[in-house]
């Protein structure tokens, strides 16, 4: 095990896969000579050259479509979209080509592309750089959506995603690239389906994904110390398909659920998880599940407004206390 930063884990995964398979390439804006906006492709250009580490023009739909076309004949492209807000421009190719080609060709063609992109509110980047899009991607049949919460997951999921025969969207976060954590030495492949218990507990399940797993863990610590409430934290590292069995198992144990998502509530991860709870284990519940979500506004620039717009560990604590009538 080596301790490394999230961006280093991503870089190592791509480096290893590029060494192994000459048909793996990475592409995106400033991924090559400049080494990547968040350093995730640092050093790859020097090592593998311009044919495989491709600085693209600012043509998100174009270069995403190009990568998808290349993947039809065996290339394994890893696309970096600089900010998920720009992925809207590539939506046509992701939605209409990558996700549907296997189905509409009767299984003849597949688009094994990996699309990595940071989504989330960072620090006063304003409305057009702060949105989250995972809720959009997870509603697309034919596309896998994962969202690593640790360097270990980032490494193992990216490696698995490169080798997987389906298109995979990896939802990252601008604030997490410098997060440190242990990463296994040698090839490690993290599952692209399922969930993980990040902290076992008895009294209530806190569901999080990506950055909100860390808010849940922080809230759980606080609730244990100050209120004697023992929270289980479940890391939903896969958003599509959501882990029905994992959600059911945890709620059947704790009988209570709070879902923490950085995105706004409508049509979100929280609504999906609550629907699954209803379908799988409604009669196990001791209390109505709660969502902790962003306010439904474009993210404001002003620091205080920005902070008020997105949830935090404190909001999770409040939700849990409310649920316990405290």
């Amino acid at each position: 095990m080596a301790v490394m930063m999230y961006w280093e884990a991503l870089q190592r995964a791509q480096d290893e896969e590029m060494t192994r398979d000459p048909l793996v390439l990475v592409m995106g804006e400033d991924v090559g000579v400049a080494g990547g906006t968040y350093k995730a492709t640092k050093g790859l250009y020097d090592k593998y050259g311009a044919e495989r580490v491709i600085d693209t023009p600012i043509s998100e739909n174009g270069f995403t479509g190009l990568a998808i076309g290349a993947s039809f004949i065996g290339v394994r492209p890893v696309i970096e979209i600089m900010s998920v807000n720009f992925a809207w421009l590539a939506m046509d190719q992701i939605f209409n080509s990558a996700a549907k080609v296997r189905y509409m060709s009767g299984g003849q063609l597949t688009a094994p592309v990996v699309i990595r992109s940071p989504g989330g509110t960072a620090h006063q980047l304003g409305a057009q750089h702060s949105a989250r899009m995972e809720k959009v991607f997870m509603g697309i049949a034919g596309l896998r959506v994962v969202t690593p919460s640790t360097p270990k997951q980032a490494y193992g999921m990216l490696k698995a995603a490169i080798r997987c025969n389906d298109p995979v969207f990896i939802n990252e976060h601008e604030l997490m690239y410098n997060m440190k954590g242990e990463v296994p030495d040698g090839d490690y492949f993290h599952p692209l389906e399922g969930s993980e218990v990040a902290r076992p507990g008895r009294d209530v399940t806190l569901f999080g994904y990506n950055i909100s797993v860390h808010w849940c863990l922080e809230a759980a610590e606080f609730l244990a110390t100050h209120h004697g409430i023992d929270c289980e934290v479940v890391d939903l590292f896969t958003l599509s398909p959501l882990d029905r069995a994992g959600i059911k198992a945890s709620v059947s144990k704790t009988h209570r659920a709070v879902i923490a998502e950085e995105a706004e509530a409508p049509v979100g991860v929280g609504s999906e998880v609550i629907a699954i709870i209803n379908e799988e284990c409604f009669f196990e519940l001791d209390a109505a599940p709660l969502r902790v979500s962003a306010r439904n506004v474009p993210i404001p620039y002003n620091h205080k407004l920005e902070k008020a717009a997105i949830p935090s560990a404190k909001d999770i604590v409040h939700a849990v206390l409310k649920m316990f009538g405290k």
Binding site: G65, L66, I68, I73, D92, N96, L109
Partner: peptide, 25 residues
């Protein structure tokens, strides 16, 4: 025959990508 696509203009980049793959191979 890599397919018929219904979104007008969709195949332009897909064709360029196939060409990229052919070049790499």
């Amino acid at each position: 025959f890599m397919g018929g696509y219904a979104l007008v203009g969709g195949p332009f980049p897909l064709a360029a990508g196939i060409a990229k793959g052919l070049k790499m191979k």
